[in-house]
Structures are given as structure tokens and as C-alpha cells.
Design a protein around this nucleic acid. Structure first.
Lengths: 350, 350
DNA sequence: CGGGCGCATGGAAACGTTTCCATTCTTCAC
DNA sequence: GTGAAGAATGGAAACGTTTCCATGCGCCCG
């Protein structure tokens, strides 16, 4: 009696067959007005909700998509998941979610789980789309998927992203226009992230075009949050960078924090620009200059691609979303007499 | 041929019955070593993954929990979802997620969807746990659920939260100890949020205990991000507050931003303390002082309560998690000669 | 040497739907 | 009035599992 009502209960109460109940409730086939009325009344009395699991079994489709992200606590992924969510709800799909916390073991288990749940497809962001066991598995079982944020270089895989190289160029060009000549980069591990590699490539290319020498590159781990000791070695001497490009916003925030801890002012001594466009960046002081990816649209678009079968026949296709450069107080003009002013201020401050 | 393998395919390939395949793969019942070997080989050849949907239908349990949050893009919810995720993965549960974006219509649809998917229980955060149609629905169908963050006042409902009143008192006591005598509050709409009401109550009580008059209360909408015009009226005159307590961190950030826009310095002119303990608060300048809720543990605990049947017989029970006050640069001592210093600075700045 | 016991295995039902097909009944045209 | 067409409805199969029950077999013990 605590059991939830089944279609059989409804049929019994309405005095019809289960076939009729099904037809009435799904609007398929015809039925007498009074039959429809009886059925609807019975269903409502019992607060009957068709079991999607029974339905799925029969229909061999689940109307469920899987989502796999490295972390929900990074706003850029949270936002993209929200976009997927919106689009999925709109289309009547459910969303089964899993996060990996950058743990390969958890990643394969998560994929196994989603596969067992017979999701119709996946939207996911992996560390390295060129070298991913999980993606190989998906290819093997022929389950459609669309990558978000990833931009595979060698293996053709359906993905939605921004043009990371062009976007990074835009950042560097901006810095260059502001008078910066020595521009460093803080980047996620190249071996672990296709995005980081691409963004580094764009940085390097733009520097070349501008005739500037590449500044220091600091590779850091995803969850590294104390960067002061990593940056300190590069901040001595007259050749020190006046600007840093961070390969994502969390790194940019950590960088700003570290620079402050080291007694430097942002942007007076050193400018910082991030990549992602997280919203909190607007609220802080100094507000974060960043290359904005349309995160919500990224998720929504990825879902839409998936739903419209984009990755079935059209495998390996890519959608590039537009990016914009959001100005912010963390990115200012290069200091004019940088070396003196800086040294003095640091002495008085410490 | 593009079909995924079923247990029947495995049985055929191994030359045994489906019953045997099921037993071997589930480790239930006995089987000859060579039979087990054959079955495992066949399953692996076909990369067979038992369909949880077939399994669920039979077992009448889905090993799936539903999660409903107002928004995934608020870090405090994202973090709690991550905690649920962790605990669920650990326990072999899948997580079906839905977000409402503070839209009641979306909320009921989301609940309907989760119900149809036959989740075994829900962890959710609603606007007002005392007046929620969704919760009434859940009570009606007797589906176990545990609230996270919510702290219902009148209706007994299982929940995991911090003691919002005590926590708010702690904030006010801290402010009072720092010399603040006029303390305002920025709060989410009371009608829409039990948390906001509780935190307001704590604020009020603590002020009373300290013999301080209640400062201005500014009620704002959830997604209101430009607060300058709302705050401006309260920042004139000698009786203006020297500190604001914001009922959540997003509001605190918006408040700091607004104060800066109005030419005030945080914390030299006005202090601000938030509530939630979001991580980004640490990274910004000034770093955010905030009442820290253990968000991840909140999610994990809520899931655990759900799993262990907490809300079945033990309906209406509550778990209170410990909170801490995280100091931050946004909360400093009250300005000594506040009125003169402030007025002058404002004039020179604007 | 025979009876019984226990182990390995298979057959079949059940879970909650949808849907094909068959059946009954109405109705209309000739 | 008769036949056919079509509408309303019901019966039953199917989806992929798990699990109860039955069957067959080998072996041990008396």
C-alpha cells in the first residue's frame, strides 16, 4: 500500500485495460471522451506517474544524457552544466551527472556508471581529448558524445569550444597594445590539458608576431592554490615580466593573490589576465580581466549538438563559439619606469 | 549489430543460460570455475554492461538519488552537490540532477521528472521549507528526502544545516567586539527564504543582547547584483552603519562592490561579513570575512542521512553541522572618527 | 549397493511500460 | 437488410534483468 501506483492500478480503478490507459495518457490512438475522463480521473486519484524505467525498457531509449566534468566547484564547469541542464529540461531530457575531481580512476568508474544507465549520449570535458581512455571506450561502444571546452588536436572528435589559439592571441595583443613587453604565462600542466597547450600556443604565436621574447612559463597543477613560491623566482631583476597571462581564471585569481602576498600591486606593478570569464571576477577588487568563453551557451550548444545527432554521422565536427575580452582592473598599462618604482615600493612595503 | 549486448547475447556466446550469466556476474550462487571463466570471457568479448534499467525494473530500486538546487552557479550549492556526488559515488549511487533557477514552475517540473525516474530519495534545497508545494508533494507520495541548508521552522522535516541563528550571532558578536555599534543587514527576501529569516533573527537577537540598536535592513532579490542605489540612502549622515552583515556570500560580494562604487573603502569606512564560506572569498582583495558552512560535508551528510533511512522513521530529524567564522580583510575594526574622516574622503574622491 | 543430499544449471515468471494485432461494436452505404 | 469500413478497446508480447523453483547429476554415508 506504500507502493507507487502502476498502470495496472489505474486500469483497474478506471475499469479499462492497461492498453487503453497507456493510449489515453500518451495521447496516442483514439478514445471515447468518457473513457478519457475515467482514465484521467483514476490516474489523478492515484497520483500515477508513469515509470520511466518501465517505459525506457520497452522503448529502448532513456531520454537521459550523461554529463562528466572534472569538477563542479570550478565556476566555469558549473556554468556549463547549468547550460546543459537548461537545454535538456527544455527538450524533456534528464541529466545524469558525474564528476571526476581530476582522478582517472573515478573517471573510468563514472563512465561505466553512465554507460550502465544507458544514457543516450554524453557531454563531457576531459583533461586531454587526444589521449583519453574514456573517450576511446565511448568510441568503442559507439555512444555519441560531444566534448565541451576540449579542443582535440590529432584525433577528430565532436566538440564545442572557442578557438583557444585565437583567443589567447587576443589577450596577448591587448597586453602588447598596453605597452607590455615582457609577458609571462601561468598554465595548467601541458601534459594533462589540451586547453592549456592550445592557449600556450596562441600566447607563443602572438608574442612572435609582436616581435616580443617569450616570458617565463610556469606550469602548475590544477588544484595548486598557493603560487607565491612558484612566482617569486621570476620577479627579480630588471627583466621581470610586467604581465601574466593565466590559462584559466582560477589560476589568475591565485596569481593575483600570490603577487599581492609578494608585495606587488596589481595592476600597477604587474598586470594579470585570465581565461574563462567567471562571473565572480567582476565582483572582486581588482576586477579580473579575462577572456570570456560563453560557458552557459557552451553547455547548451553541446547538448543541442548531441540531441540533433551531430556526433553520429557528423563525427569529428567542431563548433566554435565566439569569445570576448572582458576588460578589468587587473589588466592595466605597463608601468613606465618599472624597475625603479617597483624596487622602491617593495622595500618600503616589506 | 550496433545494438549493445544483452545478457542473452552473453549467454549464447558462453553456451549457458541467462540465469547462470546473471549469477556469475553478480557473484551470487555457485558455479564451476570453468563456467565462470567462460561467462566472464564472453561478457568481456562483448563488452557487456548490465542494463541498470532492466535491473531496476526487476529489483524495484534504482540506486539513484535526485538532487534539486536553486542554482548550480552559486558556489555554495555547487560545493554541496560535489559533496553529494562524492558520497553517492562511494556508495554506488547515481545522481540525477535538476536546478530550478528560482523558478517555481521549473521546480515542480523538475520534481515530476525525478519522481518519474523513480529516484530512491532526494537531497534538495528549496526557497522556503515551511511553504513548499514540492515538499508537500514528496510527503504525499512518501518519498524520503533530506533538506540541505534549509532550516524549517514550523513543519518538521528532515534537514542538515548549521544553526543559522547561532551562526549569525557569532558574526554580530565579532563585529561588536571590533567596536562596531551600528550594524546593518543585507538579506535575501524573507518571504522567499527560511535561511534569510533565521539569519535575520540571529542578527536581531545578538544586537539586542549587545544593547545595540538594529541598523538598516535591506532586502534584495536573489539575482540582484547592482546594489549601489539600494545602499546609498543608508550611507549618509552620522548614524550610518559601520558594518554590514550579508545573509550570503554572493550578496556580500555585491555589497563590497557597491560600497566601492560609492567611493567607500572596505574595511576602512565600512566592514562587510558574508555567510556561506565560498572559496573564492579567500582569493579576492579584500579577502572576504565570512561565516563558513561546511558545504561539501553538508551535501555528503545529507546523502548519508538519506541512504541510512534517516528520513523514513526518523522523519523531521535535524543534523546541525559546526560552523566557523573565517576572518578576512573585509571585516576590520570600526573607524574611530568615522563621520569626519569618511565625509572628507568621499569629497576628495568624487 | 542404494538412498539421499547438495551443487551446478536451466526454465520461467515477474517488474511496468508500449504497441501490434485481434476482437467487438457502431454506423453507413448500397 | 446486409456487408464493409472504421472506431474503441482488450489481449498479449516484448524490452533486460533477477530470482524462485525444478531438474539432473555426482558423491558420500550407511
Amino acid at each position: 500500500m506504500d507502493r507507487v501506483a502502476t498502470i495496472r492500478d489505474v486500469a483497474a480503478r478506471a475499469g479499462v485495460s492497461i492498453a487503453t490507459v497507456s493510449r489515453v495518457l500518451n495521447g496516442s490512438g483514439n478514445a471515447t471522451p468518457e473513457t478519457m475522463e475515467k482514465v484521467r480521473a483514476a490516474a489523478s486519484d492515484l497520483s500515477f506517474r508513469p515509470s520511466t524505467i518501465g517505459r525506457n525498457l520497452k522503448a529502448a531509449r532513456t531520454r537521459t544524457v550523461g554529463v562528466l566534468v572534472p569538477s563542479l566547484t570550478n565556476p566555469v564547469f558549473a556554468e556549463s552544466v547549468a547550460g546543459i541542464q537548461d537545454a535538456a529540461a527544455e527538450a524533456g531530457y534528464s541529466v545524469l551527472i558525474a564528476s571526476t575531481d581530476y582522478d582517472p580512476g573515478r573517471e573510468v568508474r563514472a563512465i561505466e556508471g553512465l554507460l550502465s544507465n544507458r544514457v543516450e549520449g554524453l557531454v563531457l570535458t576531459v583533461a586531454d581529448a587526444d589521449r583519453s581512455g574514456s573517450l576511446d571506450t565511448l568510441d568503442e561502444v559507439r555512444l555519441p558524445y560531444v566534448l565541451a571546452y576540449n579542443q582535440p588536436e590529432r584525433v577528430p572528435r565532436a566538440h564545442v569550444s572557442v578557438d583557444n589559439v585565437a583567443a589567447s592571441r587576443a589577450v596577448v595583443e591587448r597586453m602588447s597594445a598596453l605597452g607590455h613587453r615582457r609577458i609571462g604565462m601561468i598554465a595548467g600542466r601541458f601534459r594533462q590539458s589540451d586547453r592549456s597547450r592550445r592557449r600556450h600556443a596562441g600566447w607563443l604565436a602572438a608574442l612572435g608576431d609582436a616581435g616580443l621574447p617569450p616570458g617565463p612559463v610556469v606550469e602548475v597543477d590544477f588544484n595548486e592554490t598557493r603560487l607565491a613560491h612558484r612566482l617569486a623566482p621570476f620577479l627579480e631583476g630588471p627583466e621581470r615580466p610586467t604581465a601574466f597571462f593565466a590559462s584559466n581564471d582560477m589560476l589568475a585569481l591565485a596569481t593575483i593573490r600570490a603577487l599581492r602576498d609578494l608585495g606587488l600591486s596589481v595592476p600597477d606593478d604587474v598586470s594579470v589576465c585570465g581565461f574563462d570569464g567567471i562571473e565572480v571576477g567582476r565582483l572582486m577588487a581588482p576586477s579580473l580581466a579575462t577572456l570570456v568563453q560563453p560557458a552557459r551557451a557552451m553547455g547548451a550548444t553541446a547538448f543541442e549538438c548531441l540531441r540533433t545527432g551531430f556526433s553520429g554521422e557528423l563525427q569529428g565536427r567542431a563548433v566554435m563559439l565566439p569569445f570576448t575580452l572582458r576588460p578589468g582592473e587587473s589588466l592595466g598599462p605597463a608601468p613606465s619606469t618599472s624597475s625603479q618604482a617597483l624596487s622602491e615600493r617593495r622595500h618600503t612595503q616589506s
